[in-house]
Design a binder for these strands. Sequence first.
DNA 1: AGCAAGTGCGCAATCGTTTTCCTGCCGGAA
DNA 2: TTCCGGCAGGAAAACGATTGCGCACTTGCT
Lengths: 340, 340
Amino acid sequence: MSGPDRTIMKTRATLTDVAALAGVSVGTASRALSGTGRMRAETRQRVLDAVQELDFRPNQQAQSLHTGRSWTVGLMTTDGIGRFSTPVLLGAEDALGAGKISVLLCDTRGDVIRELHHLQNLMDRRVDGIIVTGRRTDPRPPLSGIQDAVPVVYVLSPSTDPADISVVSDEAHGCRLAVEHLLGTGRRRIAHVTGPAHHAAAANRALFTEQVLAEHSLELWAGRAHFGDWSEAWGRRAAETVLRIAPDTDAFFCGNDQIARGVTDTLRESGVNVPGHVAVVGYDNWDSMALAARPPLTTVDVDLTEIGRIAALRLLEAIDNSPSPGLHKVACRLVVRDSA
Amino acid sequence: MSGPDRTIMKTRATLTDVAALAGVSVGTASRALSGTGRMRAETRQRVLDAVQELDFRPNQQAQSLHTGRSWTVGLMTTDGIGRFSTPVLLGAEDALGAGKISVLLCDTRGDVIRELHHLQNLMDRRVDGIIVTGRRTDPRPPLSGIQDAVPVVYVLSPSTDPADISVVSDEAHGCRLAVEHLLGTGRRRIAHVTGPAHHAAAANRALFTEQVLAEHSLELWAGRAHFGDWSEAWGRRAAETVLRIAPDTDAFFCGNDQIARGVTDTLRESGVNVPGHVAVVGYDNWDSMALAARPPLTTVDVDLTEIGRIAALRLLEAIDNSPSPGLHKVACRLVVRDSA
DNA sequence: AGCAAGTGCGCAATCGTTTTCCTGCCGGAA
DNA sequence: TTCCGGCAGGAAAACGATTGCGCACTTGCT
């Protein structure tokens, strides 16, 4: 319905209004607010009073137009906003917000056209920087068409160009934490069940796990790493297989918490005590999985929020013209619960 | 030939550059681009060529400063960005993106101070509208301090002021779908296990469930609704209780998928066949729960993405000065899998 | 030829700040 | 008294676009 238009449109006060009320020129009013320039304390106070009186707040767009800084960064997520990118996003938003910077959200859904389109939009809005995050940890090609126009930080999925700034989780460290925790509780026959071999996350974690074991003159139990998918169902199936081919396995290190949960389910239902007889360690520390498992999972926390925070800090540095290019790895934490 | 621009491409081309290259005034160049005003076809073409040549794109900030529209909306989420607000957010971003509008993300973490702060920021940036979303479905007080300055749409958590625009899930509809599906498969003794009684979501779903049953001259089985928390552990415990006090129960309708999963676990481990002997229906259609349960859960999908989309559309209407105040309810879908 | 009605396009104001330049004015030194 | 340094604050030019107004030049009609 066509209601009565807002006649009482109380338009916000401008600096001109403030200056008029304070009896000074706009230039002086501006200087009074920014603290630059010299003026009598009394004059400055008159301006401040007027600001108070009119509830004046500067128009960001006008400021940005003049200074060229928009105090805005774009956050492009390539793969929806899933379980992984959300904490990253929050961490970044938090760190940026402290610096008075706001976040423009773009979801490309993995579509190159859409990515280009959003990129164009961000440039049109003169963002000060861009954070690119993906769900997978596989490297991705850098954004095309923005040669140095604005700084970019890649998160979770590093850029294939080592000259770019990338922030990722230190998976080698995560695997070390898990394996050494298991070793510390006396386990020696450790099987590894994980996701698809063509996922970097799965392949890398398997590799790092083997490396850490090798340092202790051990090998993966039950043959090589067991690649499947990231599901509970796969965890259940894989556990059955391992129990069959290597019944003396005394620990499972799993590529994520869903697999780990599936493994514990199979173990419990097979009458194998966890952690008494076999220990299980997960990866990701996904609360609703890790806590609901029986028993609750000991698991590697990749601290996604911290990753987001660090990415934001690196971006701020780059915006301030002192970028630190390269791959930044963020340490993991081991969350010890009951399963190992 | 793209010779000269490659080296000097330091700053983006402005309309002035375009006008100079085309040999016209800025005003004419502007009109050539906007399509307004009359001019010789040849002149327009010269401008268009210059735009092409210089890769010109208008500066949004300058446009906004003049027109007063920022083509930006704020999206405030009050409670982190969880499982519920994320799909809403994506739906909104999608619908708004189609209208060339970008989304500024703000996370208040349920803190009133932070909310005020973000609100202030959004106003300073002259957003065209604001979407407010919360995790809980309980009503919330409207944003304070923005008397009609910009339109606001509340999502998931409706505003306590009925004159505001709110978009929520139609929970009565969701409960009807679930209960009538159970009735359709011949169940008559339906128990209800749900979250804390002080959560609107739990209380309402229990109420609606009873209402639908009453329409069929039935009552909740195993006494009144069983309130607890939203966890699997509660689902497991509640199922045990129900099996004990009302062993002839033939269906469970649960307040969310986690509870439902807990219920199926207890049933399976007690040797009760699902759905052969007892049927189970969940709520939320949270994939990683519903699909991983044994058997996979039949559950109510609240279509959060659609809710986000609709919220965005309502906001666009309001921005265009034809708001439709009140509570808008979005229908649910029943996703039938194996548990009922 | 003369006049009105149209075209095509430039000029300049505008949006709200920031920042540079410049002008008074005051006091102190010569 | 005159000159100069320094401080307070005003005028105005940016920033990059949009748009109302009006000037010059065509055209069409008598």
